[in-house]
Simulated scan of single mutants.
Amino acid sequence: MPRTRRLNEEIELRQVEEQDAEAFFLLIERNRQHLRTWLGWLDNVHTIEDERDFLRMSYSQFLEDRAASYAILHQGKLIGNINFHPINWQHGRAEIGYMLDSAHEGHGIMTLACQTLLTIAFDDLQLNKVEIRCATGNTRSCAIPRRLGFVEEGVLRHAELLYDHYIDHRLFGMLASEWRARQAVSNWLAE
């Protein structure tokens, strides 16, 4: 899997590293209330050391080809994360998860990052399917797979315990054949 990928003049994806712990922790702290609406793992991250432990685990999974986690950098500053978790080689499938600093939402950054992970998944890793799961009420997050042409496959009821209540997830999927067809049309239109 690639360790870095430049998306444009300002945005780059880079494999997360242990030394990113403080920057990720500060990102989480700045956005904790906003992220808490949709992400259930925030109560596991109280210190920089908690984040460092998570990054060590993520890197270990990367080395074992079980997952890949990328820092999203805007002009060199960490503004988010996007990852494959987990990669199921037996079935040729991976799930994309993501988070972004609220100050950078609405600029197409996450759509571009997801599009790049689709290229990695289908072209580099030769996977057959990529899934994205979003809380049904998270309209911004659900807009990303829709924009990229994913098929909405259904709603998973009570898919996650979010602190004190259950939330439903929308399941979006894209097959390698669908991705290649979309790429062929894009290339044809660009000519």
Rank of each mutant, 00 (worst) to 15 (best):
C114V: 13
C114T: 14
C114G: 08
C114D: 08
Q115P: 06
Q115M: 12
Q115Y: 09
Q115E: 15
Q115D: 15
Q115I: 12
L117A: 06
L118G: 02
L118P: 08
L118V: 01
T119H: 15
T119S: 15
T119D: 15
T119A: 15
I120E: 01
I120D: 04
I120N: 03
I120K: 02
A121S: 03
F122C: 08
D123P: 06
D123L: 15
D124Y: 01
D124F: 06
D124V: 06
D124Q: 12
L125I: 09
L125A: 04
L125F: 14
L125S: 05
L125Y: 13
Q126T: 11
Q126E: 13
Q126K: 14
L127S: 05
N128H: 14
N128Y: 12
N128L: 13
N128G: 12
N128A: 10
K129P: 05
K129I: 08
K129Q: 12
K129S: 02
V130R: 07
V130A: 07
V130H: 00
V130W: 00
E131D: 06
E131M: 13
I132A: 10
I132K: 03
I132N: 06
R133E: 09
R133D: 03
R133G: 09
R133L: 11
C134R: 07
C134W: 10
C134P: 05
A135P: 07
T136Q: 11
T136E: 07
T136G: 01
G137N: 07
G137E: 08
N138R: 02
T139E: 15
R140L: 07
R140H: 03
R140A: 10
R140C: 01
C142I: 03
C142D: 11
A143G: 11
A143T: 02
I144V: 08
I144D: 04
I144W: 00
I144C: 03
P145G: 04
P145K: 05
R146A: 13
R146C: 07
R146W: 13
R147E: 14
R147A: 13
R147P: 11
L148Q: 00
L148I: 08
G149L: 11
G149H: 00
G149W: 06
V151G: 05
V151T: 15
E152H: 14
E152L: 11
E153W: 09
G154Y: 13
G154T: 09
V155T: 14
V155S: 05
V155N: 05
L156Q: 08
L156M: 11
R157T: 08
R157M: 10
R157H: 05
R157A: 02
H158R: 15
H158Q: 15
H158I: 13
E160I: 13
L161C: 05
L161Y: 09
L162E: 07
L162D: 05
L162C: 01
Y163W: 04
Y163K: 05
Y163C: 10
D164I: 12
D164Q: 11
H165R: 12
H165M: 05
H165G: 01
Y166R: 10
Y166C: 00
Y166G: 10
Y166T: 09
I167P: 00
I167D: 01
I167Y: 04
D168A: 00
D168K: 06
H169W: 10
H169R: 04
H169V: 07
R170W: 09
R170V: 13
R170M: 11
L171Q: 01
L171R: 01
F172M: 00
G173K: 11
G173L: 02
G173A: 13
M174V: 00
M174C: 03
L175W: 09
L175A: 02
